[in-house]
C-alpha cells in the first residue's frame, strides 16, 4: 500500500488490516504519520510494517518490495495510492512541477505494478488497485499535471488488466471525487467549495468511503472485475467526461 501514512491511504490500510491482511505502509516523507498509521492498525487488531521509499524511483521501489517480502512474504495485493500535487495554470507551470507529479503519480504506480507482477504471475493470483482521481476523468483547471497523471493511470490500469487477466490478476482503478484529506487543504477554499457543489450529493467524500471501494476490489467478491473504473465521487463524473453541472 503506497502513500499509506495519511488520508485515503491510511483509511485503506486500516480497512485492509481490519480484514486480516498484513499491511505494508508505504511512505516517502511522513515517518511519524506512518507510525501513527501502524498504531491505528495495531488498534484494529491488524499487523503492519512501515516501509520508506520514493515510488517514482525504480531502485527505491525494488527496495520497498524487497523489504516487504522479507517481512511478510510475497506481495499479493498492491494498492497504488501515493500521490503529490503541484498545482498551477499550465501557462505558469514549471517543467519541474510537471515532471514531479507525473513521476510520483504515474511512473510510481507503473514501477510498483511491474515489480509486484513478478510475484503475482508466479502465484497466478494478484490484485492491483490504483487510486485515481475524478480530475483524470473530467479535467481540472490548474491541475494539468495531476489530471494528466490520473488520466494516464486509467490507461495504464486497463492495459495491465488486459496483459495479466489470464493469470487471475485483476487491475482496477478507484476514482475518488473530492475527499476530505490533507491534499485538499492545499487548495484554495473557494475551489474546495466549488468541488463540493459539482457533486450531485453536494458534499465531499470521506476516506473511509474510498477505502471500502478499494477493499471490495481486492476481495474475493470482485474476482471477475478487471480493467474497471469505480467512481467514488457522489455522482460527480457519472462514468463520463461530459460537462457536469454544479448542484444548484
Amino acid at each position: 500500500m503506497t502513500g499509506a501514512s495519511r488520508g485515503v491511504g491510511r483509511a485503506v490500510a486500516l480497512a485492509l488490516a481490519a480484514r486480516g491482511h498484513l499491511v505494508a505502509v508505504g511512505y516517502r516523507s511522513g515517518g511519524a504519520e506512518a507510525q501513527e498509521t501502524l498504531d491505528l492498525i495495531d488498534r484494529v487488531g491488524g499487523t503492519g510494517v512501515a516501509v520508506e521509499g520514493d515510488v517514482g524511483l525504480g531502485e527505491d521501489v525494488d527496495g520497498i518490495f524487497t523489504a516487504v517480502e522479507a517481512t511478510f512474504g510475497p506481495v499479493e495485493i498492491l494498492v497504488n495510492n501515493a500521490g503529490v500535487i503541484r498545482d498551477g495554470l499550465a501557462l505558469q507551470l514549471s517543467e519541474a512541477d510537471w515532471s514531479q507529479v507525473l513521476r510520483t503519480n504515474l511512473d510510481g504506480p507503473f514501477l510498483c505494478a511491474r515489480r509486484a507482477l513478478r510475484g503475482m504471475l508466479r502465484r497466478r493470483w494478484g490484485r492491483i488497485v490504483n487510486v485515481g482521481s475524478v480530475a483524470g476523468v473530467l479535467g481540472s483547471a490548474g491541475q494539468v499535471n495531476y489530471a494528466s497523471a490520473k488520466a494516464g493511470l486509467l490507461g495504464m490500469s486497463r492495459s495491465l488488466a488486459r496483459e495479466v487477466a489470464s493469470r487471475n490478476i485483476t487491475v482496477n482503478t478507484v476514482v475518488p471525487g473530492p475527499i476530505r484529506t490533507e491534499i485538499l487543504s492545499e487548495l484554495p477554499t473557494e475551489r474546495v467549495r466549488e468541488l463540493s457543489r459539482m457533486s450531485p450529493m453536494n458534499r465531499m467524500g470521506t476516506s473511509d468511503e474510498v477505502a471500502e471501494a478499494v477493499a471490495f476490489l481486492i476481495s474475493d467478491s470482485s474476482g471477475f472485475i478487471t480493467g474497471a473504473t469505480l467512481p467514488v465521487d457522489g455522482g460527480m463524473s457519472m462514468g463520463g467526461s461530459s460537462a457536469t453541472t454544479p448542484a444548484s
Partner: peptide
C-alpha cells in the same frame, strides 16, 4: 506459449 508466458519463462 503466449507473450506473457515467454516473459515469465525469461524471468
Amino acid at each position: 506459449a503466449d507473450s506473457l508466458d515467454l516473459a515469465e519463462l525469461a524471468m
